[in-house]
Design a protein around this nucleic acid. Structure first.
Lengths: 234, 234
DNA sequence: CCTCCTGGGCTAACGTTGTTAGCCAGACTC
DNA sequence: GAGTCTGGCTAACAACGTTAGCCCAGGAGG
């Protein structure tokens, strides 16, 4: 198994840099991901980074690739696993990615909305731990739950990987398609799959951006959406 | 009617500045919206802008308010209008917003994806003019069509207004709710409305970011989504 | 052992960005 | 006429991404 499309190859040192960048990103927010701060975290000076990576965009592309790969991984196992109701198990079992042993970052940092991402004022992100309950759930519900959990567990990386214009040319080919394919596996029809993916992304990104009114019951909104996309609905 | 929640009050000159900012944004893309470029467009120097607006964020907040107000306007008329199949008519009839006469910008700039927004590599945004055809459409289809058309007609403003963390504190209160309320009017149930809004946003933002695979038939994806959210589906 | 080369660090510096401080001309008020 | 805003201006700062150029360690080849 593993993440099918291979990520762009990086020197060992470059990989270290990207790992540090990831930690910095998730700990301090995207605005704090500067070349100087990144270098300092590694005990070197900013210009030295350019000996290993051509520019900042390359760091971001590498991060995007990691983000897509991990998201894809989470979704694939969610869709393959024989419908486990608890969404947490998947992450823990697959995230120590086999392709990249050096990424020893503690990604599996549980589900509490990351402590502090200072750039992003955290707004409504106070009580939004999804409630896992109800019936053992259909494939679609399982997939959506995995999607939501994964995104909320890695908010900054998710945002980086899925928002804003994509530098497709610099990205490992096929990665996006692969990451999205579980939606097809779950619903069987490509256009419906695309629609479901769009729904999931819209939900997650609006939740991350604190865009829903204060007291919204997002669990119910997700459920309502899942129901809409389910084949024979009650 | 008009946009119910009043936008934050601005001095006449500040309004001019925001109008120029909007033009700059839509013509040259978000990266080109710098204080210096904005000032130059007005024939003054950057520091002078600070006599009228506290900082760049204030410019952006004002733009966001305009974006949300216009989006809300478009959606409201789409939902109130007795189901006109042609989505174009709405914009033209309501956009010269009655609240703000000085915004004489040609917003109604038709539907061709704006010529050049250089910062955003336009990618797949080549052949994505939505095809208006098929049966006269349900309220939900009308709403979704209006949403998509409006967003694609004002891509940069839409992105600014709906992506990234919201500075809620600085935003006119109630604006977001008002802009989103047509979704409730269309489906009748709040959670389903939120889900439908999320779907629409996800579709649009992914389309704007050129995130769908090359040859995607987005019309069908929209249709599939609309069908999923429709009450009694075939 | 000496030489050479190269990988990977460094400092200095440039051009942009948002933003502040402080100056000054005109217009309006009393 | 004196005074006070209003709204321009220049100069400057800090932080950003990035480039140029220096230099030291260590391995390779003779």
């Amino acid at each position: 198994m593993s993440s099918h499309p291979e990520p762009s190859p990086l020197s060992p040192r470059a990989t270290e840099i990207v790992t540090a960048a990831r930690a910095l990103l998730e700990e301090q927010g995207p605005d704090s991901l500067t070349m100087r701060a990144l270098a300092e975290r590694l005990g070197i000076r900013a210009p030295s980074l350019y000996k290993h990576l051509p520019d900042k965009a390359a760091v971001e592309v590498a991060l995007i690739e990691r983000g897509l790969a991990e998201l894809g991984q989470a979704l694939h196992t969610a869709v393959t696993t024989p419908a486990g109701p608890s969404a947490d198990s998947q992450e823990a079992s697959t995230c120590p990615s086999p392709t990249d042993p050096s990424s020893a970052t503690p990604v599996t940092a549980a589900l509490e909305p990351i402590a502090a991402a200072p750039d992003f004022p955290a707004q409504t992100l106070t009580a939004d731990v999804p409630t896992d309950e109800g019936p053992p759930s259909s494939p679609i519900e399982t997939l959506l739950s995995a999607y939501r959990h994964h995104a909320l567990a890695n908010p900054a990386l998710y945002r980086l990987a899925t928002s804003g214009p994509l530098p497709r040319k610099r990205l490992a080919p096929g990665l996006e398609e692969w990451a999205g394919s579980p939606f097809f596996l779950a619903v069987g029809e490509p256009h419906l799959a695309q629609a479901l993916w769009s729904f999931a992304h819209g939900m997650v990104i609006l939740e991350l951006d604190g865009r829903y009114p204060e007291g919204s019951d997002l669990d119910r909104t997700w459920a309502e959406g899942a129901r809409a996309f389910s084949p024979g609905r009650p």
